[in-house]
Structure formats: structure tokens, C-alpha cells
Amino acid sequence: MTHQPGATLEHEASQPRARGRVQVSSKLRDGRSVIDGLAMAGSMKALFPRTDTTGLDTMLINTAGGVTGGDRFFIEATAGPGTTLTVTTQAAERAYAARGETAGRIETHLSVARDARLNWLPQETILFEHMNFERSLTVDLDPGARFLMVEPIILGRVAMGERIQDGRFRDRVAIRVGRQAVYLDGVALTGDVDAQMSTASTLNGARAMAALVYVGADAEAWLEPMRRLMPETGGVSLQSPDLLTCRIVAQDGFALRRALVPAIRLLNDDELPRPWML
């Protein structure tokens, strides 16, 4: 996955690129959420660890080991009527160095039916020096659906002293209820990411950050309990009675997890997907 020193553009273009696709949906059977449809192709797989709950848990695995220039991954998850579907990842996603102009892309589409709930709880995405990575997450909720999202990002492996002095990252999140946007977010980092993220208004030199969003009729009830969980560099807000948004900045991935795990438990009926266990 790491780039070959001295690799030329033509050489790069001739290298095989990772392609991966997972499509999964849930349905209700005897009061439990079970697999409805499942399709997998290329370097993306889904596992279904057994759980004690009535919900369906799926764990995505990028068998290519990360994303580099020209890679394409596509994830589609649909929580059918009345079901609870939790999607997480087996390992942290890695956006590796990319040579050439073409970005690596992960495109995710989530749909949640009426009276259903989807938890999108991937582990951290780690950005590396010289990455060229684009990501989009589109979420379509039927009225009355519930949705929890946590998206953690880490700038390099802190313990390894990694820096990002050059790279390109594009991230877009769109959450729609009945086709109308209720939450939009966009992050665009280009060039010396470390320098840009060193200032007081950005990350103040911290290396980890997460966005957390909860959509549901009970969102308002979670505002005060969430506020009590916030670290000095975290904030939570209620945009409308059914939309709770939160942003946490932390020194490193471990500190971020320490802040996120109680928040996930709080907003997810005390359930924590196995990969999230500290």
C-alpha cells in the first residue's frame, strides 16, 4: 500500500487498484433483526459477529489494508422497517500515501426505514503523509427513523511521531430526513495539514477529532447527559428537538476513544460494538 520510491505516474497507473463493495440490509424476523440482503465484492467484506441483542451487527473489513490513490470502495447499508442495524469496522481505516492525481475514494450510502435504527460506528480513520483521500457519507432517513453516527479521524500515528506536511483529504456528510438535508458537514484539508491544524481555532495541535450526530425523536433528552460527558475540548448542541450534534477534539486516538466510548454507550442503550471495547 505504501508508495514505491521513484515510481513514475505511468508505473502508478498500471498498478492494480483496490476495488471493494458491500451491500447489506436488515429485516425483522421473530422480533430480531436479521440479514435481508447481502452482497460483497472485491476487497471489502462484512462479518456478522453474534450478539446478545435483538439488533444486527455487521463489521466491515477492508482486506486491501487501507486506501491509496485510485482505490474505490462502496458501502451500502439499509435498516429495514423496525430493525436495528449497527455497522462498524474491524480495524482503523488507513488513508495511505498516494502517487498521482487520482484520489482513493470511499463512498457510503445508508438508509433507515420508519421505526428502524442504524448505528454507523466505524473505528478511526488514520490519515497518513501524502494521502489523497475522498470520502462521502450520505444518509437517508424516513421520518421517525433513528440514526447514530460517530466518525473519528486521526492525523497520523501519534506514537510513531508521524507528521502530515503534505496531503489532500475531502470529506462530506449529508444526513437527510425525507430527502431534506438536516445535517451537512464538509472538511477539506490540502497541503501542510499539520500546520493548518496547529492553530487555536482548528485542532490546536491535537491529532484526533470526531464528529458525533444523533437523529431521533428523543434527541433532546440526551443533551444534558451528553454535556456532562464532554471534555474541555468537546461540545454538544441540540440544533432541533430531534438533532443532536457533537464535536470532540483530543490529543490522540486513545484520549478520543476515552471520550467517545461513554457517549456511544449513552446514545446506544449501553451497547458498544466489540471493536470499540477499550
Binding site: V187, M197, S201, T202, L203, M209, G235, V236
Partner: peptide
């Protein structure tokens, strides 16, 4: 589609 914002701690301050 170009709209983006990376002033995370400024947003946290507002919260």
C-alpha cells in the same frame, strides 16, 4: 459541493 469548514475548536467554542 465546495463548502467545507475545519475550524473545529471554534465550533466547539460556540457549543
Amino acid at each position: 459541493t465546495h463548502i467545507a469548514s475545519s475550524s473545529f475548536l471554534s465550533d466547539i467554542a460556540a457549543m
